[in-house]
Computed example of a mutant assay.
Amino acid sequence: MIKNFVWRVLGSLVLLVVVPTVTFFLQAIAPVNIARSVLGLNASEETVAAFNKRLGLDQPLVVRYVDWLTHAIHGDLGVSYTNLQPVQNIIGPRLSVSLSLIVGALLVFTLVGVLLGVLSATGGKVVGSIVDAVSTVGLAVPSFVLAVLLIAAFALQFPIFPATGYVAPTVNTGRWASSLVLPVIALAFAGVTAVAKQTRDQMMTSIASPYARTLRANGASEFSLIYKHALRNASGPVVTVLGIIFVGALSGSVVVEGIFVLPGLGSQALQSALQHDLPVIQGIALYFTIIVVIVNVLIDVATTILNPKVRRS
């Protein structure tokens, strides 16, 4: 079991090299003159040449990549092309914003999704039909459409939550939580429906299994059967789905942050892509990859704890 876990961790760590590498070459081969984009079309040839030399843009592509990778290994992600600030200084403060949004969405679609899935599996056909209907809506409506609807309903029509902006928790905890409510719902809604359907399917299989009938025959209460045995057996596949949904939420956060004007990594990635600021894009890709690797490791640990068969393998 430990050997398999170590190999899965090593496989996840490969992403730390693969993703930034692919991002680097895709951005670097784009037919864009970075110096002209930053300095303007009227910049002199001497100014452009000096800019390229200062940032190493006059070097071959492979040399630039090796130089970036060498510095990244030592914790130096380079400097921004647009303002010459260290990349860490640009994206570091934005990390907490994105983590607040993504972790909040993870908690919502985990807790609400599992609860709805259990109720759907144990509450009869009516509850199951309601969950199916909500799931259909959640899978069909994109997060950006839902975000606009939420703003129209709960920020404009009924001004309960702010439509845009972000307040740091160190400034005002209440306003911080309020500024995240609508973005978290928009990002988590599709995940809630997916988790609910997966939980319901796994719960129904567990409840109808032979061991469940044996427990009933031995006098086990329905509460114990559902929440102690069936839910635990269903949790393995559900945890795996949570990992997949979480990775999808990373890409969804880019759009959600843009709509709600949240100063996170997603909105910075979009801005840097428009400016062809490769070092910042590289740094954000690396940060997102690290988050994915951490989540994959946690998913493997949770699956190992919840599934005895994995522990014995």
Rank of each mutant, 00 (worst) to 15 (best):
M1Y: 15
G11H: 13
G11F: 13
L13R: 02
L15V: 03
P20G: 10
P20H: 11
N33F: 13
N33M: 14
I34Q: 11
A35S: 14
R36C: 00
G40I: 14
G40A: 12
A43V: 12
F51R: 11
L57S: 07
Q59I: 04
P60E: 08
V62M: 10
V62Q: 04
V66T: 12
T70P: 00
I73R: 02
G78H: 08
V79S: 10
S80K: 05
N83E: 09
I91F: 06
V103Y: 00
L106F: 13
L106N: 03
L115Y: 09
V118Q: 06
L119T: 00
L119W: 01
S120P: 05
G124L: 12
V127Y: 01
A147K: 12
F154G: 06
I160L: 15
A163N: 11
V167L: 09
V171Y: 00
N172E: 01
G174T: 13
R175A: 15
P183C: 08
I185R: 08
A186G: 12
A188K: 14
A188L: 14
F189P: 07
K197W: 00
R200E: 04
R200V: 01
Q202A: 14
M203F: 02
M203N: 03
H229F: 07
R232D: 01
A234F: 01
G243P: 11
F246V: 12
L250R: 11
V254E: 09
V255C: 03
I259T: 10
V261L: 05
P263S: 05
S272P: 12
V280W: 06
I281R: 00
L286W: 06
Y287T: 15
I291R: 03
V295Y: 03
V297M: 13
T304E: 02
I305M: 15
L306R: 06
N307R: 04
